[in-house]
Design a binder for these strands. Structure first.
Length: 284
DNA sequence: ATCCGATGTCAAT
DNA sequence: TTGACCTCGGATC
């Protein structure tokens, strides 16, 4: 489920539903029970996303209306990383179903959010938060992101841009879909080594992520096709798989490229499927 | 009924 | 590079 856009969307939703309110916190499955008990009944301050990491702030320091940025909260924080299969879903408040897999439930009388299958769900303090953030590259979904920090790593690395884009120390929040789609849209071959990429090419990649990822947050799905290649514009069937969005190459192996007609390529790369169009994305 | 893969990451080999 | 982890929906028998 999760590239950065999903996490940012969830952070926004959690903040809207719960910020400033006392919440019930439980771990029906039991694997987060001790922490849940500690937090149960306390007030949720806010939720924030950094790349694919979700931090739910249970700090009791009120947010100053005069200084929204304010001093850093001392927490505690619930640190959630969904991993490949984790899900955080909204359900109707009421009796719990599927308790055996329900790691964490946060609810009021109005709203209930359920976390299942996360890679990480842990109670952490400010030092751990600082350490976590220090290990992340700039996040295209955050206003304070500095793409030059990413470029610094990219242009000094002999690793391929496909590998670098998936490295959360380089850029936080990009996953397998955005990687494939941004490289396709910028017509960059995935095997291009970082140290042969032009600064301009990196700027185009970054600018495209900054354009695409907020759309993903807003729509709750990843759409990357330009207006002239949409199903309506081309008279083709819209995509129906559960990943949702309209894309150029991700999971389209063997199907014709929407621009040139060549069969979209796929190969296993660093344990994931890498998709690209061998005609539109020239090696150079 | 069972299998497989998935928008991810880490440790072990 | 592979395996482990955690869950679930779609495909396949």
């Amino acid at each position: 489920m999760p590239e950065g856009h999903v996490i940012h969307r969830l952070a926004d939703e959690l903040t809207v539903a719960f910020a400033g309110r006392p919440v019930r916190v439980t771990s029906p499955q039991g694997r987060f029970a001790a922490a849940a008990e500690l937090l149960d009944g306390t007030t949720l301050r806010a939720a924030e996303a950094y790349g694919k990491h979700l931090l739910i702030d249970f700090g009791s320091t009120p947010v100053s209306p005069l200084e929204p940025a304010g001093p850093p909260s001392p927490g505690p924080f619930v640190h959630i990383h969904l991993g490949l299969i984790g899900k955080l879903r909204w359900v109707r408040p009421g009796p719990v179903e599927g308790a055996d897999t329900l790691r964490l439930r946060i609810e009021t009388d109005q709203h209930a959010a359920e976390l299942r299958g996360p890679q990480t769900c842990a109670l952490i303090g400010p030092d751990e938060v600082a350490g976590l953030l220090a290990g992340l590259g700039p996040d295209p979904l955050r206003a304070d992101a500095d793409p030059a920090r990413a470029w610094q790593r990219v242009h000094r690395s002999g690793r391929s841009i496909a590998s670098l884009l998936m490295d959360q120390r380089v850029a936080a929040g990009v996953g397998n879909i955005y990687r494939a789609e941004v490289l396709y849209r910028q017509r960059i071959h995935p095997d291009t080594p970082g140290n042969t990429l032009s600064a301009r090419a990196w700027q185009r990649i970054w600018a495209d992520l900054v354009e695409l990822m907020p759309l993903g947050v807003r729509h709750g799905r990843i759409d990357t096709v330009r207006p002239e290649h949409t199903p309506e514009a081309m008279g083709r069937e819209p995509r129906v798989d559960r990943h949702g969005g309209e894309v150029y190459v991700y999971r389209r192996a063997g199907q014709p490229c929407l621009v040139c007609g060549r069969e979209v390529s796929v190969r296993a790369f660093e344990g994931r499927n890498l998709y690209w169009c061998a005609r539109c994305q020239r090696r150079r």
